[in-house]
Write a protein that binds this DNA or RNA. Sequence first.
DNA 1: AACTCAATATGACGGAGGTCATGTTTTTGG
DNA 2: CCAAAAACATGACCTCCGTCATATTGAGTT
Lengths: 210, 210
Amino acid sequence: MIRVLLAEDQAMVRQGLKMMIETDKEIQVTAEAVNGKEAVELCGNHTFDLVIMDIRMPVMDGLEATRIILSRRPETKVLILTTFNDDEYALEALKSGSRGYLLKDADTSELIRSIRSCLEGGLVLEDQVAANILPKLMNHNAPEEVDESLTPRELDIICRIGEGRSNREISEELALSVGTVKNHISIILDKLELRDRTQIAIYAIRHGLV
Amino acid sequence: MIRVLLAEDQAMVRQGLKMMIETDKEIQVTAEAVNGKEAVELCGNHTFDLVIMDIRMPVMDGLEATRIILSRRPETKVLILTTFNDDEYALEALKSGSRGYLLKDADTSELIRSIRSCLEGGLVLEDQVAANILPKLMNHNAPEEVDESLTPRELDIICRIGEGRSNREISEELALSVGTVKNHISIILDKLELRDRTQIAIYAIRHGLV
DNA sequence: AACTCAATATGACGGAGGTCATGTTTTTGG
DNA sequence: CCAAAAACATGACCTCCGTCATATTGAGTT
């Protein structure tokens, strides 16, 4: 038996959802909440396999409630429920640790399929939503190409600066003199048109070298 | 009419797929290729709405073929076809610009649904695959929580260090004396248990403050 | 009223960072 | 094989960074 907590402020939507969900004999809505705060409290006192959480609710919204619940009971699966096919929300919903994103206009079979997929470890994502957020996530760590005039040695040193090492530490790790490390850094600063090691560290991280 | 190019080296799979696809009267397999190279050549001479591309093929694999085709005809949709629910491939497939990821054991209705969703701009992703790759993409910019003992002023200065500013620049931007900026930095270093401004910059980026 | 804390300031001090000039040794490519 | 580039080294020099001690102001608390 799958125990579901339904967190949704609109009684009508809640009722409709409950009926749709309980079409499946193995799934039961064992509790309902009208806002995020109630949902958090219920999760403190009871155990649920799945929480279906509306994103817009009074008192405490669904994303914050999700974060709190997962920080206390990480094994709980949370599916975010929303009206809009809004990729901004989708990203936030995923960052908060939810296991997916249900649209309110989904039909019963779609709903059941999503719930079961989620409980089996899947992440439920509309194709349209996926098309919007994946490129964002990929571009975000898009490794802009590194200046190709950099030598292997210089790249190595850039990495170490990006890890927060001092010149002394770098010189010891590479069995060089401190002066040599400084020389390399001077050349790096020149090639990359930067001013100091801090900017090198930023460069290193932004270009995915660390 | 939707024109599909089928790139798959195994004749049997190709035949089966073709029959499943053409269940839908609006979709037609107008060409077939037995490896990536053939697929690329066919795309040069003809126009297709969709390419279904096996990932493992002789001569040229599906990922490389995808990259070449998309560099020449970016409007083409490519769906990658594979046997395994392998997230390593999935990431590569998405990076290559494909619009999703079909499993060979999908049934006919699933297949048709995926094709149509893809042509409508969707990104087709198994829930299990999504569950594997999304955390990877998100962890990269995982906003570990920032030390809460930091004051607003200190956070501000941390951000500016994370942008590569010198003490002098920061003091001018905030209308402070250089000494005050240094004082703040000393306190920041103490609170975060760091050693120098470079490590502060790294902290700022890793915690999503910049 | 007494207290705490954030924010500001000053000046002195030592050390790390970065520049420059110069030179040697290896690697590598034509 | 020779020339160019990369890697390594030294020492002098100056600047910027960060520490420390000390102090003032204003906001909020008890």
